[in-house]
Design a binder for these strands. Structure first.
Length: 618
DNA sequence: AGTATCTTTCCTGTTT
DNA sequence: GAAACAGGAAAGATAC
């Protein structure tokens, strides 16, 4: 180990801790590197070298716990963004960006020769106001709070304000010291963690993942040091409080994101047969990280909804992949996959909360969305409309809820390494059952078969299906008063409630709808956008939609009538808003988040004017 | 165990 | 007349 690490105990954004050192340290892969960052940041091959002028007073420069950098929390993002710009093919050009928290003035600094390498950072760059001149890699960066909405929300920042005595002036050179800090791009580790099971994460993966989540959620990178020695296996053992204790104010978000990730991995790694890898049914080709252009805020969007089989009538929706790429890059350690579907224009939901707390996922998503826009508080919960790019990260939500009930309720015969997956063991069971019975033999990708199975017709599938202990199925809901309302009860009279404990976490209906709207397999064929700016969408195939929902919920009795009743309940909570006078048309309300796609109805420019996709009204 | 929330089911009546 | 809408009521499931 280098003896003079300026980043003792913390690497986050480098600056939180590094600022404690008053000496200028050159870090990174550039010619001026003073030490091998890889030793500290094994995943830091896209660290960049910057010389940063940190505005602070020097009351606490001895590196013993003082944190004299009030800007630290956001620095990583700022610089990451800066860095990413240089990768965008315009390294020599002046770029204008905006951000709410800091102003970053980048000026040439011949003393630093930071050569950041490689990588394709496709980051949104609205966040930083910078003026970059000449040498793309050599900067003097002055970090100044701009009035600091974000800073104010940052405990560390607040704590340090007294010391920092920031003047918010770019000219306050007397209060600055120049440091070179490592800058992590948002995807700085090449997503190594994405290719591993969390249990296999090393410390670097943990930090990398933290960065990814923080970046997507707009969480300041200030307490990552407290995670610095934690491996994935440690994370798996941590509960929400543990996360919270390590990361005040935002720990729960990391916790939720992590649990969601685990959940999704579980789903996917055990459901290979329903993953049409040739067609990326799960959108597996794409990394959940942020290294796809314009998708900075996308989180680990495992497209769980896409795991659904299409309804029988959806066969015309062949599963042809948009890109046809095999999902090797998303291979999980055990052959499972993990990844989003955004390359299909699918932003998948990712409503956080593993605990199914609506408030939680709404908050999470909202904050993520905001990060994406040039509005104010990143903590704001209002959904922002942002033409074309609001692919926010989304929650982990709906997906958290998805389970393939067809495959549930069967014992698993191999024990998995993640005992702490307790909450999701049912997923594993389901997946195991699936693997056991189908994956290795004759995976059923036939939609009808799947649907049939979900209807409880397939004994193997439903062997442990909803029953009341007597083998009889019990219907849910209000009892019929007429008593002879036949049909639905014909199956239900002897059929039981499909809603069982296993249903838990299936996701919410609105999320399901939202995700369909982001999935070219279902949009615009089953649902379609009517006015994407206002969140207005239409249900095209109402009964098929209901069937699909019923499939998810393992409820073959689902009808559009029932589904629509549930939809109407959302009016009260303002997740949906009624659209009067227009049948089958709904509108996302203020409490729905992450619904806006950047490619509504998956229109293809080349096909303009010649198909139904071209009907988005604005 | 109690409560809140979400969803499902059934229902009556209304609107398109 | 059918389909959809609106919303009350009741009950199941789940989270806290």
């Amino acid at each position: 180990m280098p003896s003079a690490s300026p980043f003792e105990g913390g690497l986050i954004c480098g600056i939180n801790k590094s600022a404690e050192s008053s000496s200028s340290v050159v870090i990174g892969g550039g010619a001026g590197a003073a030490w091998d960052c890889d030793e500290y940041f094994p995943m830091c091959d896209d660290l960049f070298t910057y010389t940063v002028s940190v505005v602070h007073n020097n009351n606490n420069n001895n590196g013993s716990g003082g944190n004299n950098n009030s800007m630290a929390p956001h620095l990583g993002h700022q610089l990451a963004n800066n860095a990413s710009n240089h990768h965008e093919g315009q390294p020599q050009q002046q770029q204008q960006q905006q951000q709410h928290h800091l102003a970053v003035d980048v000026s040439p600094d011949a003393s630093v020769v930071g050569q950041h390498h490689h990588h394709h950072h496709h980051l949104h760059t609205h966040h930083v106001q910078q003026q970059q001149q000449q040498q793309p890699n050599d900067f003097m960066v002055h970090l100044l709070p701009l009035g600091g909405v974000g800073d104010q929300t940052n405990p560390a920042t607040n704590n340090n304000n007294n010391n920092n005595n920031n003047s918010n002036s770019m000219n306050n050179n007397s209060a600055t010291s120049h440091k070179t800090i490592p800058v992590f791009s948002s995807s700085f580790s090449n997503g190594a963690w994405e290719k591993k099971l969390p249990a296999d994460w090393d410390e670097s993966d943990t930090i990398d993942w933290l960065f990814t989540v923080a970046n997507k959620l707009g969480i300041p990178c200030e307490y990552f040091a407290s995670f610095g020695h934690l491996r994935g296996s440690n994370l798996l053992e941590m509960n929400k409080d543990d996360f919270q204790s390590k990361y005040p104010n935002h720990g729960h978000k990391f916790y939720e994101a992590f649990r969601q990730l685990v959940h999704q991995i579980q789903l996917q790694q055990h459901s290979p047969a329903i993953i049409d890898t040739s067609t990326d049914l799960l959108g597996l080709q794409n990394t959940p990280a942020v290294h796809h252009h314009h998708q900075v805020h996308q989180t680990n969007n495992v497209d769980c909804w896409s795991m659904l089989p299409p309804p029988p009538s959806m066969e015309q929706n062949n599963y042809t992949a948009a890109n046809g790429q095999p999902p090797e890059n998303r291979l999980m350690a055990n052959g499972g996959y993990c990844g989003p579907a955004h390359e299909r224009g699918h932003y998948t939901n990712n409503n956080s909360a593993m605990d199914s707390s609506s408030s939680s996922y709404i908050y999470l998503n909202a904050s993520a969305n905001l990060h994406h826009h040039s509005h104010h508080q990143q903590q704001q919960q209002q959904q922002h409309h942002h033409s074309g790019n609001s692919k926010s990260l989304g929650g982990y939500g709906a997906s958290d809820a998805i389970q393939l009930t067809n495959f549930q309720q069967h014992h698993h015969h191999h024990q998995h390494q993640h005992e702490s997956y307790d909450s999701y063991s049912l997923d594993m069971m389901a997946a195991d059952h699936y693997s056991e019975n189908y994956s290795n033999s004759t995976p059923s990708s036939d939609p009808e078969e799947m649907m049939a199975a979900s209807d409880g017709i397939s004994p193997p599938m439903m062997a442990n299906g909803p029953h009341n202990g007597t083998g009889l199925l019990k219907r849910v809901g209000r009892p019929s008063t007429s008593g002879n309302k036949a049909s639905s009860s014909s199956s239900s009279s002897s059929s039981s409630s499909r809603r069982r404990k296993q249903d838990r976490g299936y996701g919410k209906l609105w999320e399901f709808i939202r995700d369909l709207l982001h999935d070219p397999k279902y949009c615009p064929s089953m649902v379609r956008w009517e006015d994407v700016n206002d969140g207005v969408f239409r249900i095209v195939q109402s009964e098929k939609l209901a069937n699909l929902w019923g499939t998810i919920k393992n409820n073959p009795r689902m009808t559009y009538e029932k589904l629509s009743r549930a939809m109407r309940y959302y009016y009260k909570s303002k997740v949906f808003l009624p659209v009067l006078g227009r049948r089958l048309v709904y509108k996302f309300g203020p409490h729905a988040v992450l619904w806006k796609p950047d490619n509504p109805n998956f229109e293809h420019p080349t096909m303009e004017g010649d198909d139904v996709r071209h009907s988005v009204r604005t």
